[in-house]
Amino acid sequence: MIPASPLQLQLPPTRDGVLSVIFQDKSDPEEIPSFKRAIDGRLSSDKQIRKVSFDLSRIDPEMNAAGRLMDLACATYRQWRLQVEVKMPADIYQILHEIEGKDRVPALTSKPPLIVRGVTVLIVEPLSATSVEDEAKTAAEVAGTENAVTEAESKTILCCRGKVRAVDGSLITVSLFAEEEEIVGEFDRSQFSRPDLKPGMVFEYQARIKAPGVTTVSIDLLTPQYPTDEEILDASEALPVDFSKF
């Protein structure tokens, strides 16, 4: 038997008659029958439950079995005749729609609510690792245990100086100075902390991986002074771009 990945499924205490079924990380297709047994166990032992909410917002976008989890939600609805909802990110839903067709899975653009075989689907943002981490920390504080803290690896993949080259409405053309090279790119004005951007301003650019598939970019304006490009290059201690971690 292949060992199951840890933390594939969480069943927190029922709140206001709602049983939340939280899937996270990778989902092993062979584990679906055991997920069903666990859910059925809770439903048969707690008659106060009036709604089941399947939360797929934290599943690994690559290593997931979303179709099977959707089937599981539908089977729960058929068997228990309770209100069942599934929260899932739009991209995962869109692929299910493409696979199964509009008759089984309505298009994302359909008039809400999206109903799949009696189950209501709510489109949610994929939960970032930061919020997973924060929630886990909060849970740990509440529970008073250290074990509940999920260690989220955070790694810097690029850290270098940059310079604003041109400002055109919300489009900001910049140069990044990494590994003794100048890389020209475009940012959106909203990515900067202050609106009064001018060509020549220097900033520190940092791209960090918070979790697999979750990359954050931070831009800290350093100075409105205008050092020469050579000076910036000389001062840069850039880390190379590591796309493999994306």
Partner: peptide, 17 residues
């Protein structure tokens, strides 16, 4: 396209996913 904005990083993430 060439560039290093957040949107482009996200696109790269999608492609590799």
């Amino acid at each position: 396209h060439k560039g290093l904005g957040q949107a482009r990083a996200d696109q790269m993430v999608s492609t590799t996913h």
